Simulated scan of single mutants.
Amino acid sequence: MGQGHGQGQGRRHAESLLIFLDARGLEVSDTVRERITTCHDPDQLITWVRRAATVDSAEDLFA
């Protein structure tokens, strides 16, 4: 698989993460949204998705 596939996968993970945070009722600042949407590492995004299940704020994803 090429780099384009990885970027597409990362974009899907980022979108899913933002949807998940929204569903939990967590406010996502522009800074957090930018950090999520500019991340192209699918493994990092998956880590953040897992953390999103238990954090108290979107900023806590990065702690």
Rank of each mutant, 00 (worst) to 15 (best):
R33F: 10
D60H: 05
A58Y: 01
H40W: 04
D41N: 14
L61R: 04
A23F: 05
F20R: 15
E15Y: 03
S16W: 11
L45P: 03
I19S: 13
L21K: 09
F20H: 15
G25Y: 11
L17M: 12
C39M: 07
V32R: 04
Q3G: 04
R24N: 07
V32H: 09
T47L: 12
I19Y: 12
G4Q: 12
H13S: 10
D41E: 14
T38A: 02
F20M: 14
Q9H: 13
E59I: 02
L61F: 03
C39H: 00
F20L: 15
L21T: 11
G4V: 10
G6N: 08
F62G: 03
E34A: 09
S57M: 01
W48I: 01
L21V: 11
L45R: 02
V28L: 05
D41Q: 13
F62Y: 06
R12C: 02
A53E: 13
A63K: 04
R35D: 01
R12T: 06
G10S: 15
P42G: 02
I36W: 02
A53P: 00
W48E: 01
T47N: 09
L45D: 03
A53V: 11
A14I: 10
E34N: 09
T37N: 11
E34G: 00
G8V: 08
L45I: 10
V32K: 08
D43W: 01
G2Y: 05
D30S: 14
E34Y: 06
D41M: 03
T37H: 05
Q7P: 00
E34P: 00
A63I: 00
A58T: 02
L61P: 03
P42T: 15
T31H: 10
G4W: 04
H13A: 14
I46D: 12
E34M: 06
H40A: 14
A14H: 05
Q7W: 08
R24H: 15
R24F: 11
R35M: 07
L61E: 02
V32Y: 06
V32E: 08
T54D: 10
M1K: 05
V28G: 07
A23C: 04
R33E: 13
L18Y: 04
H40R: 14
R51V: 03
D43Y: 01
E59Y: 01
G25R: 07
L26H: 07
E15I: 13
I19C: 08
H13F: 15
A14M: 07
F20P: 00
D30E: 15
S16I: 11
S57E: 07
R12F: 02
